[in-house]
Amino acid sequence: MALPARLLAAVCLVSAAALTLSSCTGEGTAADDAGKEPAIGSIEKLSSTEGLEFPIAAYETTSDQQYQVKKAQNRLIDQCMKRFGFEYAPPAPQPPSRDDSKSRVFGLTSAEDAARFGYANPRRATDPAAAERQQLPPLSRTGQTVLNGVDLVAEAEAKKKGKTAAPADEPKSQAEAEKAPGSGIMVNGQEVPVGGCGRESALKLYAPKPGSVDILFVFNLGAQAESKALEDSRVREATAKWSQCMADSGFTTSSPDSVQSDLGLEQGGLSSPRAITIAKADVACKTRVNYIGTRYAVQSAYEKLLVEENAETLALFRQQTQDRLRLAAQLNG
């Protein structure tokens, strides 16, 4: 049985709600304040992203660490549901990726992969047991209420009538949840936590105390750096040169980020003979115009600025990540 959308969104809700002093980056980067692009010095010629180190990577978690935390959250959900008399095992998280590298951070860059697989990614993790995974029996309506903290059927009916109740003022941390008024929903003599067992599990892992850093903080910094880099004049120039190189090879596409959609490569045809031909041209053009070297130099410069500006918050984030991993290890046994 798939997790309800409300539960799947629990971590994101915590992330959006349990923000801290740290979720703002102040007045912007020094480059922004001066209206200038950051200096990058000489640009190294690169034909691959393998082995490249990015400033923000030091604060990211591995796919195995993410997997362990998701397993721990499932255990917390199970423990919570049992308090109310329900046997419920959330679907197992996807196994950790076999490849934590940045091999495709700027799109396809390996000439060998292009020639063998086109745009298909042979390193992408698959779960061979997914198709055979036993379907869980559906929860009763009351069980769904305990899991989600709301009667989903009643909520849907209210929405049809335009009478959706205002959302509860949900606590932003587990410490606040333990002191705040409950949901008012009683099941088997106990009050369901605000947001149900799904939200309780997320709070315990991602926001145990007030002042917990947004779990998406590092991700958002990386996305901000990438966005700035893509708008940087040096990257735009490299992209234009790559596009012209592709046109010279007979392919009209505006950017390596949109090459597959621009040229109509569907998911099932990423390793077709046509896809392989395009992929080989793509990689060759990236090397010819030093697209990878330019993207890396520019994006690293923006990441470095953001790391410097958010050093205090990132240190707190790192400590809280270690605390979360220790709790996950205890829960997973």
Rank of each mutant, 00 (worst) to 15 (best):
residue 82 K to H: 10
residue 303 E to V: 10
residue 311 A to C: 06
residue 10 A to Y: 00
residue 241 K to M: 07
residue 189 G to A: 12
residue 308 E to G: 11
residue 204 K to A: 08
residue 196 G to S: 04
residue 246 M to L: 09
residue 70 K to L: 15
residue 48 S to K: 02
residue 227 S to Y: 05
residue 227 S to F: 08
residue 165 A to E: 15
residue 172 K to W: 03
residue 65 Q to S: 05
residue 331 L to H: 07
residue 87 E to W: 07
residue 144 Q to D: 04
residue 170 E to L: 14
residue 60 E to Y: 06
residue 213 V to I: 12
residue 269 G to S: 11
residue 314 L to I: 13
residue 277 T to L: 09
residue 170 E to Y: 10
residue 36 K to C: 09
residue 173 S to K: 00
residue 116 R to M: 09
residue 186 M to E: 15
residue 16 A to C: 11
residue 275 A to N: 03
residue 94 Q to C: 10
residue 118 G to Q: 06
residue 171 P to S: 09
residue 243 S to C: 06
residue 115 A to K: 11
residue 197 C to E: 02
residue 12 C to E: 13
residue 190 Q to V: 08
residue 268 G to M: 09
residue 303 E to C: 11
residue 258 S to C: 02
residue 174 Q to Y: 14
residue 53 E to H: 14
residue 301 A to H: 11
residue 289 V to E: 10
residue 241 K to Q: 15
residue 172 K to V: 13
residue 82 K to V: 03
residue 40 I to P: 00
residue 166 A to H: 09
residue 281 A to S: 11
residue 307 V to R: 10
residue 240 A to V: 10
residue 181 P to E: 15
residue 32 D to G: 10
residue 5 A to T: 13
residue 149 G to L: 01
residue 42 S to P: 13
residue 331 L to D: 02
residue 209 K to G: 01
residue 174 Q to K: 14
residue 8 L to M: 15
residue 66 Q to F: 10
residue 199 R to F: 03
residue 179 K to C: 08
residue 53 E to Q: 15
residue 29 T to S: 08
residue 254 S to N: 13
residue 44 E to M: 14
residue 208 P to D: 05
residue 241 K to L: 14
residue 46 L to A: 07
residue 25 T to H: 08
residue 124 R to D: 12
residue 10 A to N: 01
residue 69 V to A: 09
residue 149 G to Q: 00
residue 141 R to P: 00
residue 35 G to C: 06
residue 290 N to T: 09
residue 63 S to L: 14
residue 110 S to Y: 05
residue 138 P to C: 09
residue 242 W to Y: 05
residue 201 S to H: 01
residue 259 V to N: 00
residue 110 S to L: 07
residue 256 P to Q: 08
residue 6 R to Q: 13
residue 272 S to W: 05
residue 196 G to D: 02
residue 254 S to K: 15
residue 84 F to H: 01
residue 328 A to P: 03
residue 196 G to Y: 00
residue 168 A to L: 15
residue 102 K to H: 12
residue 281 A to R: 01
residue 327 L to N: 07
residue 16 A to I: 06
residue 170 E to R: 15
residue 116 R to C: 03
residue 10 A to H: 08
residue 309 E to I: 12
residue 17 A to Q: 04
residue 53 E to W: 10
residue 85 G to M: 03
residue 85 G to I: 05
residue 51 G to N: 09
residue 120 A to Y: 07
residue 94 Q to K: 14
residue 315 A to Y: 05
residue 318 R to C: 00
residue 29 T to R: 04
residue 139 L to N: 01
residue 142 T to A: 04
residue 39 A to C: 07
residue 209 K to S: 05
residue 184 G to L: 06
residue 240 A to M: 12
residue 253 T to F: 05
residue 320 Q to C: 11
residue 120 A to W: 04
residue 25 T to N: 11
residue 11 V to T: 06
residue 189 G to Y: 06
residue 106 F to M: 02
residue 187 V to W: 02
residue 165 A to P: 03
residue 220 N to K: 14
residue 94 Q to F: 03
residue 224 Q to H: 12
residue 258 S to L: 07
residue 68 Q to W: 02
residue 165 A to M: 06
residue 93 P to W: 03
residue 23 S to H: 15
residue 293 G to C: 14
residue 19 L to Q: 14
